[in-house]
Amino acid sequence: MRRITLWLVSTVAVVVLLFSYRTSTMGAAAPNTPGVVAAAPGVVPNGPVPGSSAGSSGPSGATVVNGTVAQTRWGPVQVRVTISGSRITDVVALQVPNGNRRDREINGYAVPALHDEVLQAQSANIDSVSGATVTSDGYRRSLQAALDAAHFGS
Rank of each mutant, 00 (worst) to 15 (best):
R3D: 13
I4D: 14
I4P: 00
T5L: 15
V9A: 14
V12K: 11
V12W: 09
A13V: 10
V15D: 06
V16T: 11
L17K: 07
L17H: 06
L17V: 10
L17C: 13
F19R: 09
F19M: 14
Y21Q: 12
Y21E: 06
R22K: 15
M26D: 07
G27N: 08
A29C: 08
A30W: 09
N32S: 12
N32A: 10
N32D: 15
T33Y: 12
G35D: 11
V36Y: 13
V37M: 13
A39V: 02
A40H: 14
P41D: 06
V43G: 05
V44Y: 04
P45R: 11
P45K: 10
G47I: 02
G47L: 05
P48K: 07
V49M: 11
V49Y: 14
G51T: 07
S52Y: 13
S52H: 15
S53N: 11
G55E: 05
S56V: 09
P59F: 07
S60M: 11
G61W: 07
A62D: 09
T63E: 07
V64T: 05
N66I: 00
G67E: 02
T68D: 13
T68K: 10
T68R: 09
V69C: 08
A70T: 03
A70M: 03
R73K: 14
R73T: 14
P76M: 04
V77S: 01
Q78M: 06
V79N: 02
R80F: 04
V81N: 01
I83K: 00
I83N: 00
G85L: 03
G85A: 08
S86T: 14
S86W: 07
I88G: 00
I88N: 01
D90Y: 11
V91N: 00
A93I: 01
L94A: 08
P97D: 06
P97Y: 04
N98M: 10
N98A: 15
N98C: 09
N100A: 09
N100F: 04
N100D: 14
R101S: 13
D103S: 12
E105A: 15
I106A: 05
I106W: 04
A110C: 12
V111T: 06
V111D: 00
P112E: 08
P112W: 11
H115P: 01
D116H: 13
E117F: 13
V118N: 01
L119K: 06
A121Y: 07
Q122C: 08
S123P: 00
N125H: 12
S128W: 06
S128M: 10
V129K: 02
S130P: 03
A132S: 04
T133H: 06
V134Y: 02
S136P: 00
D137Q: 11
D137K: 09
G138W: 02
Y139L: 02
Y139M: 03
R140V: 03
R141S: 12
R141V: 03
R141I: 03
Q144E: 13
A145H: 02
A145V: 03
A145L: 01
A146N: 05
L147Y: 04
L147Q: 01
L147A: 05
D148E: 11
A149H: 05
A150R: 02
H151F: 04
G153M: 08
S154H: 15
